[in-house]
């Protein structure tokens, strides 16, 4: 049995956070999961703890995921970052991928979460 990984879920939507948390818990019941509901909360988390996986929303009330991604990259160089956003325009996707994140378009499905956690395992 692999060591449990730590996860940070950043999204302003309670529904999305719940869905992601629930789907991860289904497969990895022992993984500790932290939730952040805004850009500022997310920054606080990444600067105080190390994460293996970070799911990041794009559009949030106090800023965008794109704006804080570089800071997260610095604070969490080993973390695997997945972008979960409804803004699925090609340019948006490309921009995130250039910064080394994996892009997943909402609505979230179980398959996506599986791929997200599996990707991290490989890297």
């Amino acid at each position: 049995m692999a060591e449990p990984k730590s996860v940070l879920v950043v999204d302003d939507s309670r529904l999305t956070r719940m869905m992601i948390v629930k789907m991860i818990k289904t497969h990895h019941s022992d993984w500790p999961i932290t939730e952040a509901t805004s850009v500022s909360e997310a920054l606080e988390c990444v600067n105080s703890q190390t994460f293996d996986f970070i799911s990041l929303d794009h559009n949030m009330p106090d800023g965008t995921g794109y704006e804080i991604l570089p800071q997260i990259n610095i604070a969490q160089p080993a973390a695997h970052i997945g972008i979960f956003t409804a803004n699925i325009q090609a340019v948006v996707k490309q921009r995130f991928e250039e910064l080394g994140a994996t892009f997943y378009g909402k609505p979230i499905s179980e398959a996506m979460i599986l791929q997200f956690t599996a990707d991290g395992g490989q890297s």
Partner: peptide, 19 residues
């Protein structure tokens, strides 16, 4: 919150067509 997120996803799709 739930409906909002659904709309959010919906508008995301709309934005693709729109763009």
């Amino acid at each position: 919150d739930t409906l909002c997120e659904l709309f959010n996803i919906g508008m995301g799709r709309a934005a693709v067509s729109f763009s």
